[in-house]
Structure formats: C-alpha cells, structure tokens
C-alpha cells in the first residue's frame, strides 16, 4: 500500500522537479528529512529519492533557462571557507578513514543543498514551498508520533527512524524544536481558518512529540521556545492558551517515569550522561590546544588512538572541573557542536562556525529593521531567528555542526539578505527618479 503511494508520488513529483529547480531543492530537503526508504518495504525501497532529487536539482540550477547564480556574500563565503577548512582538516586529521570520508561526504551534500537553495530561492513562493517541505517531513513525523504520545498516555518513547539523521531521540527533539517556528511562519501566510487551525494542531502535536522523546535537552528547548513565542508574538492570548494546553495535557498525560527523568536536569553534575559529555568537551579542548590549527579532523576525536592519550591524563592536564574517570575503551562524540568543531577543525574551524551563526543573526536583525512589521519577510526573519536560537540551545548538548536543517536556515537567511538588497536598490532608484 505504502509502496504504491510512494512510487505514484515519486513519478508525479518528477514533472515539477524537472520544471522548477526551487521545487527540486525543496524535495531534496524533504527526502533528506522524511527518509522515504524507511517508510516502505517493497520495490519503492530501491529508489534513492534524495539522490534523484538532488541530481535533477543540481542539473536544473546549472542548465535552467534563466541560469541561477550562487552569488558571493558574507554567509556563502564563510560556509565555503568552513567546508574547505573541514576538507583540509580531513586530509590532515586522524579520524577513522571510512567514517571520516562518510561524514565529509555528508557535509558536502549539505553544503551543496545550501548552494542550490541560496541560488534558486528568489521569491516568497519558493521560500513557502521550501518550508512546506520541512512541515511535510519533520512536521509530519512529529505529528504522527505526537498522536502516539497522546494515545498511549505518554508511555510511548519516541525516537527517529533508525539510520536517519534524526534517528536519535535528542536529534529528533532538536529537529522538531527548530521546525516549530517555521510552521508558525507558514500559519501566518494564510487566511483560511481551517488551514490555520490545522497548522496550530500540527505545532501542538510537534510539542507533544518532543515530550514523548524523553529528551531533557528537547524539553529545555521547548521551554525556551515557549518563552520566546510569548515575548515575541503579537497574539499573546493564543500563545498563552497553546502553552497552557501543552502544560496541562502534558502534566496529565506523562507518566511518573518522565517526570523523574526530567527532574535530573537540576542535578546535572551528578548525572553520568552529563558528566560523560563534560569529559568529551575537556578532551576536545585538549586536542585543540595540542593541535590549534588543524584539530584532529572529522571524527578524529572519537578515534580511540586520539582519545586514549588525553583520556589517561585528563584530570591532571585540565583542572578546574572534576570529572569521573573517562572511558578508556572507546572515544565519544563531543555532544556539543562548538566543542565538536573545536576538536575536529581547531580554532580556525571554530571561528568560522561561530562567524556563520553571528553573521546569520546580524542579517536577520538587519531584515527585521528593514521590512515593515506587517510584511511576510519581517515575520520570516523573526521566526528564523527563533529557529536559530533553538539550534543554539540544542547545539550545546548535541554534535550537530553539520546539519541539513541549520544549513537550510542559512539558505533562508541568504534569501532575506537578497530581498533587503533588492528592495534597498529599488528604493534608491525610486528616490532618484522622484528627484529628477
């Protein structure tokens, strides 16, 4: 049944993908986030959806009648430098070759997605469809799982599809938290009351799914998101009612086991999982201090031959925060995107990574100052800012420096930056014409 749906949809989608690169890039992201192969069992599993959509889109970007341009700007240059630096550190690094190659290739695909999205998303409708693709992938999965959380009285432990980029429950919670503001943007674009109500229900189900992941980082992100929505929204009553709904139903639904787990947020220093992360942060810092320029390369810090010498001398080399003895049998991920980049790419990589985020915030602030408060571009900038904050909140506890959704946000920031420039030049021309 699912195979028939999937194959029919795939062949029907090829027509718009061939015609419009902006649809191609959105479906590329959709396939990356939806992971269609995990939903089907028969012949539909044989198709590499992500690969097909990406190849057609890349060809479309270069061979389209009106050839799309990847224009150089601060953000694109920084992302390019960040990728080049990750490639250089991959060459000099000590990551297990097959694993490092796999992750570098994945990062290349993410950067390619950014380039294509930055080149072809030039109109509001392009951006809207791009965000619909996130809603119909991350939003869809979260809504289905959110229903399961409600139906099971909170007993259902939600995690992503095995083998997917959002497979881990913490990664899934991050992806959902990051997508909620984008659904809120879409909700503002339509006047139809049924559609607005439907999108509000999707947002609430997404919040329940985050609760169902039992992710403590996810809950912290959700709380921060609630506060930000309350501060930023013009419709405070709706936000308060939505928050009360999630809090009361969540409080009623979730089992004691969930509350016990969430209460451990307050005693992080006694928590083994948290202290394991602190150990990984300390080791990433020591690696960067010993290799300040190149770090240990992609997946280098997790390689036992790199990890072990630092693990053996951890508390004597880096004093200040006492940690339990580290694992001497295998290296661990940094569980923090900043320490991840620091350990893998040294200080130059970290500077580039931080600059990408800072420049994105700067461009979003610029767009919010430039566009009138009732315009869709203003609201897009506001919601992208919330998404980026959600990324930062989660990035503190997860190794997600190379993440499809964060680079999709950068592509949308690039769109807004272009809109500011286009509108600015149009304003200047109009004022010059008025002076003649």
């Amino acid at each position: 049944m699912r195979d028939i749906f999937m194959l029919a949809a795939f062949f029907l989608l090829l027509i718009p993908v061939f015609n419009k690169p902006f649809i191609g890039v959105a479906l590329w992201l959709w396939a990356a986030m939806f992971f269609p192969s995990a939903w089907v069992y028969g012949p539909a599993q044989l198709i590499r959806y992500n690969f097909v959509f990406s190849i057609i889109t890349i060809l479309g970007v270069f061979a389209y009648k009106k050839r799309a341009k990847v224009e150089a700007n601060a953000l694109t240059i920084l992302i390019t430098l960040f990728f080049i630096w990750s490639f250089i550190t991959f060459l000099t690094g000590q990551g297990a070759p097959a694993l490092a190659e796999y992750y570098l290739l994945n990062f290349l695909k993410i950067v390619a997605l950014y380039y294509c999205a930055a080149a072809v998303l030039v109109k509001k409708i392009h951006v809207d469809f791009f965000i619909w693709s996130i809603l119909l992938s991350v939003g869809f999965f979260a809504s289905v799982e959110g229903l399961k959380v409600i139906a099971s009285g909170g007993a259902s432990h939600i995690s992503g599809l095995p083998g997917h980029v959002l497979g881990d429950r913490n990664d899934l919670a991050m992806g959902i938290n990051l997508s909620i503001p984008l659904v809120a943007y879409l909700r503002e674009q339509y006047q139809n009351k049924i559609l607005k109500l439907g999108l509000l229900v999707v947002m609430l189900l997404m919040a329940f799914c985050v609760l169902g992941t039992y992710s403590r980082g996810g809950l912290v992100g959700l709380l921060v998101l609630g506060i930000l929505f309350l501060m930023e929204s013009d419709k405070k009553i709706l936000v308060i009612l939505s928050l009360l709904f999630v809090v009361f139903i969540g409080n009623y639904l979730m089992p004691p086991e969930w509350f016990i787990r969430m209460e451990t947020i307050n005693s992080a220093s006694e928590d083994g999982s948290f202290m394991g992360r602190v150990i990984a942060w300390k080791i990433a810092t020591l690696i960067a201090l010993d290799n300040p320029i190149f770090g240990a390369g992609i997946k280098g810090p997790e390689n036992l031959t790199v990890w072990l010498p630092y693990a053996l001398e951890l508390n004597s080399k880096l004093t200040g925060i006492d940690t339990p003895p580290p694992d001497l049998l295998r290296g661990h991920a940094a569980h923090n995107s900043f320490f991840q980049v620091l350990g893998e790419q040294g200080f130059p990589g970290l500077i580039l990574f931080v600059l990408i985020i800072l420049v994105s915030f700067n461009k979003l602030n610029k767009a919010m100052r430039f566009f009138p408060k009732n315009s869709s571009n203003y609201y897009l900038a506001k919601m992208l800012k919330l998404s980026l904050i959600m990324y930062l909140v989660s990035a503190v506890a997860l190794s997600k420096a190379y993440f499809d959704l964060s680079f999709s946000i950068y592509a949308l920031v690039r769109f807004l930056d272009r809109q500011v420039k286009v509108n600015n030049s149009q304003t200047i021309v109009k004022s010059q014409l008025a002076n003649i």
């Binding site: 699912r2 989608l13 027509i15 419009k20 902006f22 959709w30 809207d128 619909w132 119909l136």
Partner: peptide, 30 residues
C-alpha cells in the same frame, strides 16, 4: 492508520508541488 496519514502526506506534497509550480508560472506571466 499510519499508512493513511502517510498517503495524505504524500498526496499533499504532490498537490502543493503542482500548486506552487502553477503559482510560479502565473507570477512569471504577470
């Protein structure tokens, strides 16, 4: 139930892809 929702999601995706293609063509004509 999950398969029905899966079908609805794909149906909506296909519908929106054609809808936005039409919108883009209309904008170009104008």
């Amino acid at each position: 139930m999950e398969s029905i929702l899966f079908g609805i999601d794909l149906g909506l995706l296909v519908f929106l892809a054609y809808w936005f293609m039409k919108l883009d063509n209309n904008e170009k004509d104008n």
